[in-house]
Computed example of a mutant assay.
Amino acid sequence: MAGLSSLRFLRELVAKRVLRRWAKAARDAKDTDLPVLRRQRSVARDLRFHLNELIHVADSRLALPVIGSTSFRKPQGADWAWRPQLWRGPLPVSGMSTVQSKSRLGDEVTLFHDCAFSELTLRQLRNTREADLAPFGLRMDVFKFDGSFLSVVIDLPPEAVHGLKRRHLLRMDTIVEMEKPLEIFARLNIRHGPNTEQIVRELPLHEEDIMVEFDLAYTKMNEKRVERAWLDLIFEGPEMNQVILRDLTFSRRPRAEL
């Protein structure tokens, strides 16, 4: 134990000396000879990269909610519930700018638009509010928008359609923040054989709990041929706006028998 304490003391001593060294270099930068300043800048840039990476990982691990959390309110009787990976854990690539149509963020989320020139950005962000159950959120910034449509598509996993029946209700819950009001529509797509059933619902953004349900009883879905399902979030009039999806969850439950 004494050896470990000594090693810890030496590491802290070295860290303090390095900190003092860089603090002095910063203070003296305006008078430092240019060849020396150039070398310092190169080292400082390398050091900054590693420090930023450390801070990013530390903030992510130390903040709440806990990464990987699948905790959320599910309707009574639900036989399947799911939070997509983007809202559950860190992605290898956390964001992109001038996003082109069909760009994917993670394995389950794809952006579609028909802009001639993209002025859109997508970024995964860390949720830190007490009210948040999802560890991460999705932020979309839209500047000039010269297209006619903008949608975020979420591919539902195979479990979503395993045993899917027309007596099922499929539910989506979300938490949305935006800089200015806009309309958002959710369109559920279910492919069965050569056909695709579609159900569209407008998100009740004026309500505290934003939830929509899709009643499959009103479809002509062939239960024996269901292959896959996905959901489009369609944004109407998104120009010069920032939209944050703090959480996005899905669940399904069978309708009560009459």
Rank of each mutant, 00 (worst) to 15 (best):
A131N: 00
C115A: 15
E130D: 13
D173M: 07
S148Y: 08
I154E: 11
G163A: 11
N127Y: 00
R139Y: 02
F136R: 12
L156K: 06
L122D: 06
F149T: 09
Q124L: 02
D114L: 09
M140Q: 12
H168Y: 12
R171C: 12
L164M: 11
P157F: 12
T174H: 04
F145E: 11
A131I: 00
L150Q: 01
A186D: 01
Q124S: 04
A116C: 02
M140A: 12
A186K: 05
L182Q: 11
L164T: 13
E177G: 13
L120M: 14
D114S: 07
L164W: 10
R167M: 10
P135M: 07
V142D: 04
R126G: 02
G163F: 07
I154N: 09
F112K: 05
H162N: 13
L125V: 15
L156C: 05
P158S: 10
H113V: 05
V161A: 03
L188A: 05
D146Q: 07
F112V: 07
V153S: 12
S148D: 10
L150T: 08
D173C: 13
L120P: 02
A160E: 07
G163P: 02
P157R: 08
T174L: 15
E179V: 10
D155T: 08
A131W: 00
F143P: 00
L150D: 05
K165N: 07
S148E: 11
H168C: 08
F149R: 10
D132P: 00
S118N: 06
